[in-house]
Structures are given as structure tokens and as C-alpha cells.
Design a binder for these strands. Structure first.
Lengths: 213, 213
DNA sequence: CGTGAAATTGACTAAGTTCAATGGCGGTGG
DNA sequence: CCACCGCCATTGAACTTAGTCAATTTCACG
């Protein structure tokens, strides 16, 4: 994916518009762990993630990374800061190698927002983001650690096999110790079995569901 | 405000469009404490708040109201549920008497989203909402209770005079007891003085700022 | 004044983090 | 083959933050 026209957000633009868009944007490749922007950075650039996995997180007073979301292609990143002209509210760091299209927002705004198709795509992207944030709020303000773990097991059991407990804990914004204790409880209560290869086997879906619903 | 044309979101529509819009919408007045929708309700209606103060909150396992936001006119409410076709993620309750324009979303979608002006207004409304949610996340996941109180004092000192401590505590999602203890600490440390009329007098802006920045 | 709501205070509890010690397990190099 | 190393997981104990509960005081206002 090296061409602007391959990005769904812009797929309906005319050739002339695409040419103009190419003038105000450029692709950039990133290595794993490279930062795209820091929480607090000044806005101005809209990012379109085209390759790789981009982790968005905030940093608390103690320096902990508070997990917000992981973006996978294709997704808009940084709209809030651009549209509201405020500093980026979180940090974005690649956790794989990746590629991004960087767009000069001011120039984009002037030229392209008249196009209803582009507008609709932006609206779709914004509502998707609102949904994500709404879920983050639910996760972080309503759910207990136990409920988070139960929810994660029920909704992401496949991921369990591929992730280490430390990574899962990081996604859930709890410590590995807390995760370990909760999993031990679940195992002792016969809600789940964890296989040798770190697969989860859910024995009691009803109870597990009831913990977070 | 009894006419659709008075709502900025639709101010640029033609008379014909306005007539059509009137067909798929209706105003409804609410008394204080009336519920507009509950968390978990099925979507389908887009709301435009035209009068009164509407409180949005989630409910946790213990039945506590988790404060999300208070809307004042004019604002769109319920877009997420409509656009993403998911159940409302929070409850909306009037805390004053008020009035709302209820719009049938399906019909709105068909007829009006082609209009770039309407689109832009929706985008503006969505980004405003993202900003709000982003701030809620910051408040609830990054800030300690002490930091919340410090931030509230620094950014809303005028409100202090008009609100009771119980109301402030509710906005900050902490208990009145916790708020009281923190205010006592701030007073003893000479960060603030609270006057007879419940005005706050900030003595040490530097320290207070450092508590949440 | 007197009454009821709001604020304060102390003791206790609950949830989760932190810190430290221990144990397991896989890969590596002699 | 096995001894060692480093990473991850587990477990216990102390600690921190904030909520809960109850008693008491303060305050606003009729």
C-alpha cells in the first residue's frame, strides 16, 4: 500500500484531487517501538495507518502506560487533536514495523471537506473512535479487575494462546500479579482450564458472563 | 426555540429540506429528573437538546451513577448509538426542565447526509464528543481523587460558590467524604481558603497545578 | 430558635498495587 | 547431557487509595 488512492477514505476522490492530496502528504515507515507522536504534542498532522500495529496509550503520574487502544490498518489517527486544535491526548507508538501516511491537516481541511464522500468516511471513522473511547470508559470506570479478566477471556479467548500474561495484563491495565491471582481463582472455581500451550478452555460460560454483564 | 430551523445543525438547509425534517422529527418537553433514554436501550432516535441541562451517566455494579457529562443547549445526543447501531452506552436524565427534538435517525440518514454543511456540523459535534470522552478517560484513569479536586478548583473555581460539596463530589465521581477530606488537607496546607459563602480563594496556584499536570 | 440537610471526622473495609522471594521452564553453551 | 541464565509466573505480606458506615457537628432557612 504505497498509494493514496488505495486508502478507502480517499478512494472516491477524482484523479485531480488525488494528485492534490499527494502534494500535501507523504508516507513514512517506522520501526517497531518508534513513536509517532507524544501525549502533549502540538497538532497539525493527520495520520492514516496503512501498515503495522500502532499502540495508543496515556502515561500516568507514576510513568505507567495506560492502554487505550491498538490500531490496525486502515485507520485514521489523530483526528481529535486536528479537529479540535488541541494537543494530542495520548502517545502513539508502533509495536511492529509499520507505515503511515502523514497529511497536513490545515491544507486537507481547506481542500477536501466539501466532498460528501470524504465527509461520510470521516464521520464513520469518528464514530468508530467514539465507540472505542466509550468502551475504554466502560472498561476503566465500571469493570472491576475480575470483570475485565472475565470479559477478556470470553471475548478474546483466541488471543490468550498468543499473548503472555504480562501482555494481557498491560492491555487490561492491571498488574501481572493481579491477573495471576484472578486466573488462579478462576481455575480453582473451575470456570476455566489453562492448557499447557496457554490456551484457555472455558468451562462455565454462564458464570463468567455474569461477572461483567 | 420551537422550530427546526433555529437549530444550527440544520440552519443551512433549504426550506424544502426543513419541511422534510419536520416530518421525521418532533419536539418533546421533559420535567426535571425525567429520563430520555437508559443505558442499554435500543438505538434509532437522534436527540437534539434545545432547552435545559441533560446529565449523561453510567451505572456501576453497585448502582452508583458514574458521571460522564452534562449537556447544555444546543447539542446532539445519542449519535454513537445511532451511527454504530449499538445500544445507548449511558443513561440521559434531565436535571432541569427541558426540551428535546427527537429525530428518526434512519430517515434522517437517507435524506440529509448528502448535504456537506450538515456533514460538517455532524463532524464538529462528533469531535466535540470525542474531546469530552477523552477528558473523561483522563479524569477517571489518570487522575487521583486529589488531582481531580485540584483540577476542578483551578478550572472551575466560579462553580464552587454555586454548587454544594455533594454535587461537586458527584461530578468528580468521588464520595462527599473523600472530597471533604481532600479540601481539609488543602486548607491545612494553605493551598486554598474557603470563604463563608463557599467561594474558593486559591492561595497557591503553583502547587495546586502541579498536582494534576 | 428548631429542624433537616449537608459537612466533617474516625474507624473500618475492600480492591488493587508494590515489593520481595521463590519456582518453573526454555534456550544456550560448555 | 546438564548446568546455568534470564524471563515469566506465582505467592505472600505490607501498603495505598478510596469507599463505607456511623456518630457528630455545622449550617441554612423557615
Amino acid at each position: 500500500m504505497d498509494r493514496v488512492r488505495d486508502i478507502p477514505l480517499f478512494s472516491k476522490l477524482s484523479d485531480i484531487n488525488l494528485k492534490a492530496l499527494e502534494k500535501i502528504s507523504r508516507f513514512k515507515t517506522y520501526r517497531c517501538n518508534e513513536i509517532v507522536f507524544y501525549e502533549g504534542d502540538a497538532p497539525g498532522t493527520l495520520y492514516v495507518l496503512t501498515e503495522g500495529v500502532l499502540k495508543l496509550y496515556k502515561t500516568d503520574a507514576k510513568g505507567n502506560e495506560i492502554y487505550i487502544h491498538q490500531f490496525t490498518p486502515i485507520g485514521l489517527v489523530g483526528e481529535l487533536a486536528c479537529f479540535e486544535n488541541m494537543n494530542y491526548p495520548a502517545t502513539a507508538r508502533f509495536i511492529t514495523n509499520g507505515k503511515i501516511l502523514k497529511i497536513n491537516f490545515k491544507k486537507l481541511e481547506k481542500g477536501f471537506f466539501k466532498n460528501p464522500d470524504v465527509c461520510m468516511e470521516i464521520i464513520r471513522s469518528l464514530t468508530k473512535k467514539i465507540k472505542i473511547l466509550s468502551q475504554v470508559i466502560h472498561k476503566e470506570t465500571i469493570l472491576t479487575s475480575e470483570a475485565k479478566v472475565a470479559k477478556f477471556i470470553m471475548e478474546n479467548s483466541e488471543l490468550f494462546e498468543t499473548l503472555k500474561n504480562t501482555q494481557i495484563a498491560s492491555i487490561l491495565n492491571i498488574t501481572p500479579e493481579t491477573l495471576s491471582r484472578i486466573l488462579t481463582r478462576f481455575k480453582k472455581s473451575n470456570f476455566i482450564i489453562i492448557e499447557k500451550n496457554h490456551q484457555v478452555n472455558i468451562l462455565d460460560k454462564v458464570t463468567l458472563n455474569s461477572l461483567f454483564k
